Amino acid sequence: MAPLVDATCGFKDKLFAATVVSRTNWRLRRSSMNDILSDLAGKPSDTTLPHESVQRLAVLMSALNTAFAFDRTRNQCLAYSYSLAWMARRQGIPASLVIGVRTKPFLSHAWVEYGDRVINDDEKLRAKLSTIAVA
């Protein structure tokens, strides 16, 4: 499930990711989808260069990949993407959580975008699924 990244992360990033995974487990069990999307409302202004933000996102994904073994949700794509978007926003990176669906056969999926680029999944997801929410 977790996307492959070449970046490595330190202990502080792993601890941050483990805390976020625990928070995500709690939030997804006790909140509505509206609450989840509201939690990510308002994008921070990106004060770093786009290249530096993409590198930082790779480090956050590496940390999240390590901590994601503690995920206890039944919706891994939403848990991973929500966690990554939340972590990125706390770092000042305006990443977006995107949720899309397909009707035949039914499929729902969540992913993270930075600008117009899919960060943690297939880059052509917008063409394959109908977007129902962006936060």
Rank of each mutant, 00 (worst) to 15 (best):
I119H: 07
I93N: 09
R117L: 12
N120W: 04
H109C: 02
V5F: 09
D39N: 08
V5W: 03
L60R: 07
M87D: 12
W86E: 06
W86T: 07
R117I: 11
D121I: 04
M33H: 05
A63V: 04
C77T: 13
V21L: 01
A69W: 10
A2M: 07
T47R: 15
R102P: 00
T73N: 01
R89Y: 08
E113V: 10
S108M: 06
A133P: 09
V20S: 04
Q76G: 13
W111C: 00
T103G: 00
L64H: 05
S38D: 10
I132N: 05
F68K: 08
S45N: 15
A63Y: 03
L84A: 03
S45M: 15
S62T: 04
R56A: 12
K14S: 06
A7W: 01
S31K: 03
S96V: 08
D46V: 15
F70C: 11
Y82T: 06
H51D: 15
T48W: 14
S45C: 14
A79P: 12
D116L: 10
M1W: 08
T73L: 04
M61L: 11
W26C: 02
W26A: 02
V59E: 14
F11D: 11
R90I: 04
Q91C: 14
D39A: 10
N34G: 08
Q76N: 14
M61D: 01
A63N: 05
W26V: 01
C77P: 11
R27Y: 06
A67E: 11
R30E: 01
S96W: 00
